[in-house]
């Protein structure tokens, strides 16, 4: 980042800042999209907001931290020294372990709390989801779990600069760096999203998921094991959330305690992304994730970074007033 502070000229913004913001927005957008996929899939099938989804992201992030500070010393590396570069497999193992564990937790939440409420009014399910969310947050805050103090994630990926461009010359020269982390986040997230796309639209399981989403009772009559499909959806969403949590703390290593408002805001923004894209729509969630990230990052840079959360919610309200079904969603008529 540049050290010179100046007021950005809205008409002729320096190219360097624009490119840097673009890179950040793409990386963050892919994370929002990953998290939004979990929200949108659960909403598509069970028609409720899984409030606990953002806590699965937190769980994934904190598990990654816990594993990293356990694995690194056993390899003879100092986890708190930013110069250490662990081998690549550490990052992969940490991420996979977090994904598996979160998948199990996601399964357990659905099995223990949500399944019994499948026929209950939606508000009851929503309240339960808030309960589950509070439960996960505060269990995470316990001293013997993750603790209630912020931590710093050890660097698992080397801080390589894959490419750098210099804009301007002499005094005003400004470098824009494309880091390895940004590329990893973007490509990994895109790969996972493409896999999801394949799964939902080109496999038998995907057909079953869409059938349950369309009409649960009829799907059951057609011989689709609804419970298993719903469980699978939760596991899938949680696995993606865990990956997003891992990638998020690799990008931003200072981690807040599990019940911190920052995490809730992260989850909220991802949910907003799902709504903006059209909730229940898998492609919409991805689109929404990027839209949100662009609005947030460019708004933060060109208007004021103090209000970055406000832009997202303003956009949400505008979309809900103009096209309540979201960008890619189809309007739903309520039948009497």
């Amino acid at each position: 980042m540049a050290t010179v502070h100046y007021f950005p000229d809205p008409l002729f913004p320096p190219m360097s800042d624009f490119v840097q913001t673009l890179i950040t927005a793409l990386a963050i957008g892919s994370l929002y999209a990953l998290i939004a996929l979990g929200y949108t899939m659960v909403y598509g099938i069970l028609k409720f907001i899984n409030f606990a989804h953002s806590d699965i992201v937190v769980l994934g992030a904190w598990l990654s931290y816990t594993l990293a500070v356990r694995i690194l010393p056993s390899l003879g590396l100092d986890p708190h020294n930013p110069a250490t570069v662990p081998p690549f497999w550490v990052a992969a193992v940490v991420m996979l372990a977090a994904m598996v564990f979160c998948g199990v937790i996601g399964f357990a939440i659905e099995r223990l709390a949500y399944r019994r409420l499948r026929r209950a009014p939606r508000l009851n399910v929503l309240i339960t989801a808030i309960g589950v969310s509070l439960l996960l947050q505060n269990i995470g805050q316990l001293d013997f779990v993750f603790g209630a103090s912020p931590q710093k994630m050890p660097a698992l990926l080397p801080s390589w600069e894959l490419a750098s461009i210099t804009f301007g010359e002499g005094e005003s020269a400004r470098r824009v760096v494309l880091g390895l982390i940004d590329v990893v986040i973007f490509s990994l997230a895109t790969t996972l999203m493409l896999l999801m796309q394949y799964l939902v639209f080109h496999t038998k399981l995907g057909v079953a998921m869409r059938a349950v989403s369309f009409n649960t009772d009829n799907a059951a009559l057609m011989g689709i094991p609804v419970d298993r499909v719903v469980s699978f959806t939760f596991v899938l969403g949680s696995v993606l959330a865990a990956a997003a949590g891992f990638l998020y703390v690799t990008k931003y290593p200072s981690m807040n305690q599990p019940a911190h408002a920052v995490w809730v805001l992260l989850g909220l923004k991802a949910f907003v992304a799902a709504v903006i894209g059209g909730i229940g729509n898998v492609r919409g969630a991805v689109l929404g994730g990027f839209v949100i990230a662009f609005v947030e990052q460019f708004g933060a840079f060109y208007i004021s970074s103090n209000y970055r959360d406000v832009y997202v919610f303003a956009l949400l309200i505008v979309i809900l007033l103009v096209k309540p079904s979201g960008l890619l969603g189809s309007p739903v008529r309520e039948k009497v």
Partner: peptide
Amino acid sequence: IVYALLLIIMM
């Protein structure tokens, strides 16, 4: 934690 459990069990 107790509040959260109360919420869930209540529901």
